[in-house]
Amino acid sequence: MGESSSDESDTTFQLYKDRREWKDVTPVPQDDGDQPIVAIDYTEQFKDVFDYFRAVLQSGEKSERALNLTKDAAALNPANYTVWQYRREILKALNKDLNEEMDFIEKIIVYNQPKNYQVWHHRKVLVEWLQDAAKEKYLTETVLAKDAKNYHAWQHRQWIIKTFNLYDGELEYIDSLISDDIRNNSAWNQRYFVVMGTTGFTEEVLNREIDYALSNIKVVTENESAWNYLRGVLLHDKCGLSRNKKVTEFCEELYNSGNRSPFLLALLVDMCSEQVSQGNEDPLYNLERAKNLCNELSEKYDTVRAKYWQFMAETIEKKSKKEESQVEAEN
């Protein structure tokens, strides 16, 4: 959490108890009881700042100096959500320029605390107060440039895109991320989010997205993210997993070329399973093929999940028997 927490005491820091402008305030020590557990060996500075923070909370002081105090307290422990909450109260009470606060929190997020819940929440509240999301895409892009899978940044980005309808240009941004790292699952997820929030999966978009997934699978066939996306897109195909000609032809060609990506084999198993449970006797997607594929997976291509694939083969066999007995009963 706290890369910026004060490991070394700041030599230039003047303790609050030595500051003339704070002479009127009596510091309030923490009461941790007789036998505290997981007690922290606070530095003198930490104790000093929080003694004054407690004093300010107790008196309810909302002033310029109290605002500065919360800045010091937040620097010492950015995960203290009360400090941030009280800081917001002061900002409101003093009617401060919130754009200055936006710059302040941006620096903390980008340089010190990109994975801290409290600072992202602070940012979110400020955006809500200002009703201005103009800088948010840039902020999240700066953070994602350092860690393209930062969950906080993606969460913030989705929130502002949804709230302020900022979908424009998002597919292009995702494209650039996926071309940097085709395995970036966060970017794939964002693609789904954008389609759902804009056009939805109309027939045309469905086709486009299938093409997109397939062309990326071609580049790296063992990329779970792209396969998952393809399957997610196919959830919107009325005919199911196993009847989209473009997809089945792609998969068969890949398989016949000798490719044995476990994600390819798994999809073929599920295609077989779908046909079997519908009682069809498909020449390509049937029980025998499912059993062979599960064997391939458990013996060679996905051995860490061998027992799962054996279980899948049994499950599909049971489904086929169930279908058979149903057909017989109907006759």
Partner: peptide
């Protein structure tokens, strides 16, 4: 050792001491 206390470098854990207690 955790239950006995933490060094100053872990001050950012200050608001989560109960969670650390639970883990330990």
């Amino acid at each position: 050792r955790i239950l006995r206390g933490l060094p100053p470098s872990l001050s950012s854990m200050d608001t989560h001491r109960v969670i650390l207690t639970y883990f330990a």
